[in-house]
Computed example of a mutant assay.
Amino acid sequence: MARLTDKPQSVEDHQSDLEILNPERQLRIQGELITVREYGFVEGLKIRPIAQPFIDSLGELFRSGGLSTDGVIDVVAEHLDAVLQLVATAADVDRAWIEQLNDADGQALLMTWWGVNGPFFVRALQTRAITDLLEAQRKAVQASAGPTSMPTSSPTDTTSTASAATPNAS
C-alpha cells in the first residue's frame, strides 16, 4: 500500500520560492553592485502614467503577433525616455548614470530590468485583454438580445360621459 510523504524541499526550491516572492536581481556594473527590484503595488500605480504609453505600444506589438526580442527593443527605443525613468526607479539609480553606460552594461541593466519587471507589464496587458474580452461579450449579448421592445402606450385620455340607460325591450 502506498502512503503519502512530505517531500523535503531542496535549497534550490526555497531559492525559487524566495525569487517568486521577492524577484530582485543584482548585477555589477562599473564596479557597483546594482539591485534591480520589482515595482511594488503602490509604486506600480505611481509609475503608471509614465508607463502607460509603453504598455500601449507593447499591447499593439503583442496583438500584431510580432512578438520578438527585436520588437520589444523597438518599443523600448520608441519610449526611451519613459523606459530610462522606469529602469532608474527599479534600480534606485540616477537616469544620468544610466545614460553614461557603455552598450554592454546598458544592455545588461535593461535585460535585468525586463527580467524582473516584465511580469508587471504583462499583467497590465492581461488585465486589458480580459477587460476588452468582457466588454466584447457584453456587447455581443446585448446585440443578440434583439431590439428592445417598444414601451407600452399611455392610457387614453378620454372623459367618460354619462348616457341615458337603454330602454329594455320586453
Score class of each variant (00 low, 15 high):
33 L>K: 12
43 E>Y: 00
159 T>S: 07
152 T>E: 12
133 L>Y: 14
88 A>D: 04
78 E>G: 07
67 L>C: 00
139 K>R: 12
157 D>V: 13
163 S>Q: 08
17 D>S: 14
22 N>C: 09
128 R>K: 15
71 G>E: 07
75 V>Y: 07
68 S>E: 07
107 Q>C: 01
96 A>Y: 00
141 V>K: 15
25 R>N: 04
111 M>F: 13
169 A>L: 15
14 H>E: 12
26 Q>S: 12
26 Q>Y: 01
160 S>M: 13
146 G>D: 04
80 L>W: 14
122 V>R: 07
21 L>D: 06
38 E>K: 10
97 W>C: 04
44 G>L: 05
95 R>Y: 01
170 S>Y: 08
122 V>K: 09
6 D>A: 13
112 T>R: 05
143 A>G: 09
74 D>P: 00
8 P>E: 08
118 G>Q: 07
105 D>G: 02
170 S>T: 10
27 L>Y: 04
121 F>Q: 04
127 T>C: 01
19 E>C: 03
45 L>D: 03
22 N>I: 09
112 T>F: 02
88 A>F: 02
146 G>P: 06
152 T>N: 03
16 S>W: 08
158 T>H: 08
129 A>H: 09
24 E>K: 15
51 A>H: 05
140 A>Q: 12
96 A>G: 11
48 R>S: 10
115 G>F: 03
123 R>Y: 05
145 A>F: 04
10 S>A: 10
40 G>K: 06
101 L>G: 01
152 T>M: 05
11 V>W: 10
73 I>C: 03
1 M>G: 15
8 P>L: 14
145 A>M: 13
7 K>C: 06
75 V>M: 02
35 T>P: 01
69 T>L: 11
104 A>R: 10
6 D>S: 12
165 A>Y: 07
111 M>W: 09
88 A>Q: 04
147 P>Q: 12
162 A>E: 11
31 G>A: 10
70 D>K: 15
98 I>S: 00
157 D>I: 11
63 R>A: 14
28 R>P: 00
15 Q>L: 15
26 Q>R: 15
40 G>L: 10
27 L>V: 07
37 R>C: 03
32 E>D: 11
20 I>H: 07
88 A>P: 02
